[in-house]
Design a binder for these strands. Structure first.
Lengths: 344, 344
DNA sequence: CTGTTAGCGCTTTCAG
DNA sequence: CTGAAAGCGCTAACAG
C-alpha cells in the first residue's frame, strides 16, 4: 500500500480512502491511485483491515456431518447468502461431539468471525454456548432448538412426523416402528413426540419395543432394524427419523430379503434428490433446506446490525411428499416427473 | 492481552511466549499467566497474530457445486485433513464460472490464506490461475488437471471409463451412448477419450449422434437422453459421465416408461452412497474421494513447507463397482451387503 | 529467565 | 480536497 501511495504520489491515507470510497477525492488523484494499484498488482490485506476496523466480514459455521446431504444443501445456501452480503464462511465440523464442538467454535471465534452459525450438539448448553455467551459472539442456532435466548431457526418436526404416522395408521397399520435420532436433540425429541401423539390419537398404544435407537446413523439404524425384524411380532411399518437412518433401514430390510412396501411400509423424514428413483419411491418429509440456510444468515446479519433486538425463533414448514414406499400406488414416475419440468 | 499481563504482573512478551510455548519461562510465571488468562476470559486474536506473523493458518478452498455429493465427500476430507494440521478452511463456490471463480479466489487470497485448493473451471487458465500466479499464492489443483506447473491431484478417468464401455461391449452392445460433462474440463475429455478408445478397440465406430451433451448437469442430461431415445435407432446402453447426469438419465428413462437394464443398460462414473438401493443397483466407477481430499491437503502442506520443490502431479485410481444396471445379475443385495459388515 | 520496543498493513481521527 | 500520526492485538528481535 505504501508502494501504491508512492507510485501515485499521494499519502497512504488517500489510497485507503479511494479504495474504500470513504471520502471524496479529486478525479485526478483517484485515477492515479487506481493506476498505481493496477501497476503494482496490489492486493488489499483483509487481515490488516480487520485488525484496524475490528471486523472481519466473515461468519463461522459449525455444523455436524458436512457429508450429510441435508446439511450440504444448508451449507450451500448459507455460503450463497453470506457471499451475497460480502461475507466469507469459515467452516468447522462439530462431529456431533460437545467437546469437539467447543474446540471448533473457539477456533472460529479466535479467528474473529463477526458472527456464528451453529447447529448445536446435545452438549452445547454445557460447552459451546456458555463460551459464545461469555465471549459475546453474536450467534444464531440452526436446525436444532435449545432453550436459550438466542436467535434460532429450524423446521417444524412434530406435526410432519405425526402426518407420516397418521398416514400409516390410515392404511391400517397397527405395529408402527420408528428409528429415532440422537436423544436430547430437539429434532429427535420433537419427531418422537409427533410419533407418539399420532399413535395416541389413532388409538394405538406406544410400544417402546418398537423404537429403534438409530442415533441418526446409518449403521446403528440398520442394526436396530435387524433386531426389530427378529421380533416375534415384528412391525408392519417403520418411520425413519432422518436420511442416514433411512439408508440403514433399507439395507436391513434388503438384507432380510424383504421388500418395501409389500412386506413393510416405510416413510421417512428427509428427502433425497433421487428419492423417486429408489425402489420403491420414498414417501418422505422434505425440509426447506435452502430457506433454512438463508434465513439463518438473514437472522445473523440482522443481529449484527442491531445487537439489542430481542431474540427471534423461527420455525419453517416442512413438506409431505407422497410417493410409494408407504404402500400407496401413486402416480407413475413418468407422470409425476413431467409435472415438474426441468429448469433448463 | 495487556490485561492478562497486568494481572499476572509480567510483560506482554512473557504472556505471548507462555501462550505459544515459544521460549522457556519459570513455572511460577507460567502458572500466574495461565491463571490470569483464565480469570480474564482472554481469547487470543488470531487476526492480530496473523498480521504479526505473516501467516494465517488457513487454507482456501474454491470448488464448484458444494452440493455435489462427490465434492461433499472431498470437502469433508479436506476439512478433516486441514483441521488435523491446525488449519481452518475458507470456502468458496466457483459456480463453474471463470469470472466468479476469479472473484472467489481473489476474496480468499485477500483474506491471506496460506494456500489455495482449487478445482479449476474451464476458464481458470485465463483468469484465476494467472491471478494466483502473479500473487504468488501456493496452489494445488484438485479433480481437474490443467497444463500448468502446479501441484495437481485427481483421479484416473480414461481407463475406468474404458472399462465401463468394454463391459458393455462384452455384453454385446453395439449402440452405446455417452452423456458427457462440461467440454474442456480434463475430466470430461479424459472420460470421452476412454469411451472412444474402448469403442475403437471393440471394433465399434464412434458415432457423434450417440453423444449426449449433458454439461455435467442433471436436467441437461435428461433432455439429451430424451433426444437420444427418440432416435430411429436408439442406443441400447448408455454411460453416464458423472453423478448428476446419472440422475437425469434415469429420470428420462423412467419418463419414457423404460426400464434399466431390460430396455437399456446404464453404467456410470461416480458412486452414490445408496447406489445399491436404486432400482436397479448401479454399476459405477467409484472415485477415492476421501483420499483425493487428504492428498490435496498433504500436497499443499508440503508445498508450504518447501516452496521450491518441483510441482507434482498425482493420479489416484478409481474402482469398478459391479452391480446390476449393466444387465448383469450380480450377487443379491443381501449377500453383497453382508460381505461388508458395518463398522458399528 | 524476563522486558522494551519496533513493526505487521491498514483505518481513522485530527489538522491543515 | 489531502496528510501525519496514532493505534488495532500480537510477535520477535534485541537487550538485559
Amino acid at each position: 500500500m505504501a508502494d501504491v501511495a508512492r507510485l501515485a504520489g499521494v499519502s497512504v491515507t488517500t489510497v485507503s480512502h479511494v479504495i474504500n470510497g470513504t471520502r471524496p477525492a479529486s478525479q485526478r488523484t483517484r485515477d492515479s491511485v487506481l493506476a498505481a494499484i493496477e501497476r503494482t498488482g496490489y492486493r488489499p490485506n483483509t487481515i490488516a483491515r480487520a485488525l484496524a476496523r475490528g471486523g472481519t466480514q466473515s461468519l463461522g459455521l459449525a455444523i455436524s456431518g458436512l457429508s450429510n446431504p441435508y446439511f450440504t444443501d444448508v451449507v450451500a445456501a448459507i455460503e450463497a447468502a453470506a457471499g451475497r452480503a460480502g461475507h466469507t464462511l469459515l467452516l468447522g465440523d462439530t462431529r456431533e461431539d460437545p467437546e469437539h464442538e467447543l474446540r471448533i467454535v473457539r477456533a472460529l471465534a479466535e479467528r474473529q468471525v463477526d458472527g456464528m452459525l451453529l447447529a448445536p450438539t446435545v452438549g452445547a448448553l454445557e460447552h459451546a454456548l456458555p463460551y459464545l455467551e461469555s465471549q459475546g459472539v453474536p450467534t444464531v442456532l440452526l436446525d436444532r432448538f435449545v432453550d436459550v435466548p438466542l436467535d434460532q431457526v429450524g423446521c417444524d418436526n412434530e406435526q410432519p412426523t405425526a402426518r407420516l404416522v397418521e398416514h400409516l395408521i390410515d392404511k391400517g397399520h397397527t405395529r408402527i416402528a420408528m428409528a429415532i435420532g440422537i436423544p436430547g436433540l430437539s429434532t429427535t425429541d420433537e419427531r418422537v413426540r409427533g410419533y407418539r401423539g399420532a399413535l395416541e390419537r389413532g388409538g394405538l398404544a406406544f410400544d417402546p419395543g418398537l423404537v429403534a435407537e438409530g442415533h441418526s446413523q446409518r449403521d446403528a439404524a440398520r442394526d436396530a432394524m435387524h433386531t426389530l425384524l427378529e421380533l416375534p411380532d415384528p412391525p408392519t411399518a417403520v418411520v425413519s427419523g432422518n436420511n442416514f437412518m433411512t439408508i440403514g433401514l433399507l439395507r436391513a430390510i434388503a438384507e432380510r430379503g424383504l421388500t418395501v412396501p409389500d412386506d413393510l411400509a416405510l416413510v421417512a423424514f428427509d428427502d433425497f434428490e433421487w428419492a423417486d428413483l429408489f425402489a420403491p419411491r420414498l414417501t418422505v418429509i422434505r425440509q426447506p433446506t435452502t430457506e433454512l440456510g438463508s434465513r439463518a444468515v438473514e437472522l445473523l446479519l440482522s443481529r449484527l446490525a442491531d445487537p439489542d433486538r430481542p431474540p427471534r425463533t423461527e420455525r419453517l414448514e416442512a413438506m409431505f411428499v407422497h410417493r410409494n414406499s408407504c404402500g400407496c400406488t401413486g402416480p407413475s414416475p413418468a407422470l409425476q416427473l413431467r409435472a415438474q419440468p426441468s429448469k433448463a
